[in-house]
């Protein structure tokens, strides 16, 4: 660069061009993200008469709705924590476990597929596997004499749903955490070793603390992912399972008859809980990321 132009404002034509380029994105974000969500959430505080009210919020505190939130939180939490832990173990195994290199490429590709293989088809797959007539159910019964349904298992239960959700949660964790694991420099582990640390001590003091913010971030993402998931549960059970998204789905379908404010309040509760998961993540990661730029 030879001579800097004086720091005068850019010609107006160019400025408007920039805004013209960004405008579609901003209009889109307002119309299809911000306004609908805010409008809906505001609706939680508006009664049938159009006045401000807390009645809709209060109406959430029925046994059925609280139970639905509670089981949703438990399923999302369990599938997020298990998905993160198992996904981390698998990512570590394929990246740091010195397995044959083609295995890694295969696992990463499969993870891309499986993390997007949610919804109704996934429900079908698990019904065909662990449903009452599923292959694994029948093999366990006829070959091993173990009737899992008689011993309390049900695909439409907490553990059944968690097990199904793990099918997309684990691959999502693998996909997101793999770059972070790649970012662990070989020299860190060598430096720790030469200073006398065992592999376990390296992971305890160096490896896992470095990965921790990424793990937490992914954990909150996995939680939100499971919390909002409806298609998989709906495909498994129809509307019979009492989790929040299905409750909300039913509420929307029957909107004309029921109270629209209650639906909005349900939605508000969902957003608050996923937001909470993210705030917890932000707080913890801010504390553990002091060492980051």
């Amino acid at each position: 660069m030879m001579i800097q132009a004086p720091a005068s404002p850019a010609p107006p034509r160019r400025l408007s061009f920039e805004w013209l380029g960004v405008a579609p994105f901003i209009i889109f974000a307002l119309m299809f993200l911000a306004f609908p969500t805010l409008y809906l959430l505001a609706g939680a505080f508006i009664g049938r008469d159009g006045q401000f009210t807390f009645d809709n919020i209060a109406a959430l505190f029925t046994d059925q709705i609280i139970a639905a939130y509670w089981i949703s939180i438990r399923i999302s939490g369990a599938s997020a924590i298990l998905g993160a832990a198992i996904g981390l173990a698998m990512a570590l195994a394929i990246i740091r476990g010195r397995l044959p290199a083609p295995l890694r490429a295969a696992v990463m590709t499969f993870s891309g597929v499986a993390s997007n293989f949610a919804g109704v088809p996934l429900a079908f797959a698990f019904i065909a596997t662990l449903g009452r007539l599923g292959l694994v159910t029948i093999i366990l019964k006829t070959v091993f004499g173990l009737d899992i349904y008689r011993s309390g298992f049900n695909l439409l239960s907490f553990w059944g749903l968690t097990l199904t959700y793990l099918y997309f949660q684990i691959p999502l964790m693998v996909l997101i955490i793999a770059p972070a694991i790649d970012g662990l420099k070989k020299e860190w582990s060598e430096a720790a070793q030469i200073l006398g640390a065992t592999p376990w001590q390296f992971w305890r003091y160096i490896g896992l603390p470095i990965l921790w913010p990424s793990v937490l971030g992914t954990l909150s993402l996995l939680f939100a992912n499971a919390f909002g998931a409806i298609a998989t549960a709906y495909g498994l059970t129809g509307s019979s399972l009492n989790i929040v998204p299905i409750l909300l789905y039913a509420q929307i379908r029957g909107d004309a008859l029921q109270n629209p404010g209650l639906g909005a309040a349900l939605a508000l509760g969902m957003v608050l809980i996923t937001a909470c998961a993210n705030i917890i993540y932000l707080v913890i990661s801010a504390r553990s990321e002091r060492w980051m730029k």
């Binding site: 420099k185 020299e187 860190w188 430096a191 030469i194 200073l195 640390a197 003091y205 470095i210 060492w291």
Partner: peptide, 28 residues
């Protein structure tokens, strides 16, 4: 390596990014 009681300095520093200077030096 962890039984040899040797010290090593690497080309790319290889300080532990999550530990401060004191903890890095005190790690061994």
């Amino acid at each position: 390596p962890n039984q040899r009681q040797l010290g090593m300095v690497f080309q790319a520093y290889a300080l532990f990014p999550n530990l401060n200077v004191g903890d890095n030096i005190g790690f061994g």
